[in-house]
Design a protein around this nucleic acid. Structure first.
Lengths: 155, 155
DNA sequence: ATAGATGCAAACTCTTTGCAGGTCG
DNA sequence: CGACCTGCAAAGAGTTTGCATCTAT
């Protein structure tokens, strides 16, 4: 779940090495994202952070999520439901349930080798790749929810 | 590049079978998307359509892109630069050049088997999957553009 | 002390919607 | 003719920015 060491002192040191101050807002935003596997949107993070820091502004949440992602402390990804952040910066794939909208992490085990195979293609230098699966998760299959939901809540 | 038969009469017939009229706007929007491999945004399509139909409205472009995608005449995908449409509805993967921002189609040959491998995982029913590669394309490698561009034009 | 971060409000971009009028079949 | 579609303008969602103030180091 965690790539960079996220224990409080380690985060502090690493942030500072990047020239970033460990403000209260920044620390809590980081904690919130790391504490969930819900692949949260900015709005979700904002709601959570506000529980502990009622006067935080949405702008601060956006600025920090973007900055932390740019510096590699978080991963940022776009999907049909919008932009989402992920505390798990280790390589992994995703499975999105089209019935309930939940996004599950999938170990890259299954897709290892994909990059090597494409790399041989004419002229492309592959630096990274992402695999996204879509389908129905175990829970939804059992409940037999037949029709995929369209307007997903954006947690 | 083309899945459904896109010759004028065939499109007409197919659209009608779906209960859609072949209006001039709809036809040109479809032609524009099918005529490019640039994975265009709505704004790009709007600009192009307006060359031939100066009074078209952006709302009509959006309504039609969404509708046509919902009916399977186009593919719709979200990436960090926004929502893009693709006239190629056949299964294929994408390679995005982080230097120039261009998106290339990649045959699924290289990634075939990915789904089968994940399918065995506990409880997930995989209906679909997508592979996205990121790296530098041949042209950009030769030009030696060193630093990846951040604010990409959204063609 | 001071570079950097925050809160607030306004601005911006992208997308959707209501409605009166136009068009396809 | 009637259902569907369009253009326009206004509204909505999500995100960014300018600026005065505050704070971590």
């Amino acid at each position: 779940m965690i790539t960079k060491n996220t224990s409080a002192p380690a985060v502090d040191a690493t942030l500072r090495a990047w020239g970033l101050r460990l403000t209260r807002q920044r620390r809590i935003i980081l904690e919130v994202v790391h504490a969930t596997d819900a692949h949260p949107t900015a709005a979700f993070v904002y709601r959570r952070v506000r529980r502990r820091l009622p006067r935080v502004s949405l702008a601060t949440v956006y600025r920090n999520l973007r900055r932390l992602a740019a510096e590699g402390f978080l991963a940022e990804r776009a999907d049909p439901s919008g932009v989402r952040f992920d505390g798990n910066t280790a390589p992994h794939d995703h499975f999105t349930c089209v019935a309930c909208g939940r996004i599950y992490d999938v170990p890259t085990r299954a897709t290892r080798g994909v990059r090597a195979r494409i790399a041989v293609r004419s002229g492309f230098e592959v630096l990274n790749h992402r695999v996204e699966f879509y389908g129905r998760c175990g829970a939804c299959r059992r409940q037999g929810g037949r029709s995929p939901v369209k307007g997903q809540r954006r947690s």
